[in-house]
């Protein structure tokens, strides 16, 4: 059940998107999110949708794989959608007892759910086509200016350390999810109950799950620290990269596409 979370997982394939520089993808995702939250009419929405579908096609990641990531938050989406639908004032369309569906509410609900769904699918396109290491390398490089700026004013922003922490966290998320599953089963075999009871009872019932999980995470951290030291890890200084980030003509073309998308989007927004 927990294993079905796809957010933050990499899907190996050989596509244009996979071979793009992570910085391009980071920038692209940023642009996508900004446009996603600033559309206010149907043509703009259609434009974003077409762009998303195009990118998904380019990624060669099966669509079903991306949708799987949605399953875990479907309840959240439904609740948020319902709240919007019933609690927004406007012209009443349908009346269900004390609850009213208004026109503005309906539009808001659709807007908000589609935004959430597209936000999750869009960001998972990035994580599915970029290895966590590339992603952190991209972040590290993109935030490189912070290090330089920090050096000038004598503050260490630990950009490399943060990038390293991120990549390790991403590496161990699936491992810890599997572990959670295992410990949960083991405690259930001892009669533990993770499902019934009120909020307080549920929270106390989590103790037999959380304590072993923390213990295991600490044990792994100790092991990992040794393993990293044994392989000569000594912070970011003097480190080289197997695949240093360099822009190719493909990345240039991607940047051009992105800028064209931005211009087109805001042109349409201004006109309509």
């Amino acid at each position: 059940m927990l294993r079905e979370i796809t957010l933050g997982q990499y899907y190996p394939a050989n596509s244009v998107l996979h071979s793009l520089d992570p910085r391009v993808k980071l920038f692209g995702t940023l642009v996508y999110i900004i446009t996603l939250f600033s559309f206010d009419n149907v043509p703009l929405f259609a434009m974003i949708l077409i762009a998303l579908i195009g990118v998904i096609k380019l990624s060669k990641v099966p669509f079903s794989f991306m949708v799987k990531g949605l399953r875990s938050i479907i309840m959240l989406l439904v609740i948020a959608g319902l709240f919007n639908m019933f609690l927004t004032p406007g012209i009443t369309l349908v009346e269900l007892g004390p609850l009213k569906i208004t026109d503005v509410g309906l539009i808001n609900a659709i807007k908000m759910t589609s935004r959430m769904v597209m936000l999750i699918i869009g960001t998972s396109v990035m994580t599915l086509t970029t290895t966590p290491n590339q992603l952190t390398a991209g972040l590290e490089k993109s935030l490189g200016f912070l290090s330089k700026f920090g050096a000038a004013i004598n503050v260490d922003f630990h950009v490399h350390d943060i990038a390293m922490i991120m990549s390790i966290a991403l590496r161990f998320i699936p491992v810890l999810i599997e572990e959670t599953d295992k410990i949960m089963k083991a405690q259930m075999a001892r009669g533990a109950d993770f499902e019934t009871g009120g909020l307080v009872k549920k929270a106390t019932n989590m103790v037999p799950l959380l304590v072993p999980l923390f213990v295991s995470a600490f044990r792994r951290a100790t092991d990992l620290a040794y393993a990293m030291e044994a392989r000569c890890y000594n912070g970011g200084e003097g480190r080289t990269k197997m695949r240093p980030l360099t822009y190719t003509s493909l990345d240039q073309r991607a940047y051009i596409c992105l800028f064209m998308y931005i211009i087109l989007f805001y042109a349409v927004k201004a006109v309509l």
Binding site: R231, Y233, T240, K241, R243
Partner: peptide, 27 residues
């Protein structure tokens, strides 16, 4: 599990030479 640092096999194998400052093409 606790000694593989990267999320892709070859990136993990590259970890030590990267730390050692080996030039990229040699890595």
């Amino acid at each position: 599990d606790n000694q593989i640092i990267a999320s892709v096999v070859d990136e993990d194998v590259a970890f030590a030479p990267e730390n050692m400052g080996v030039p990229s093409d040699e890595i």
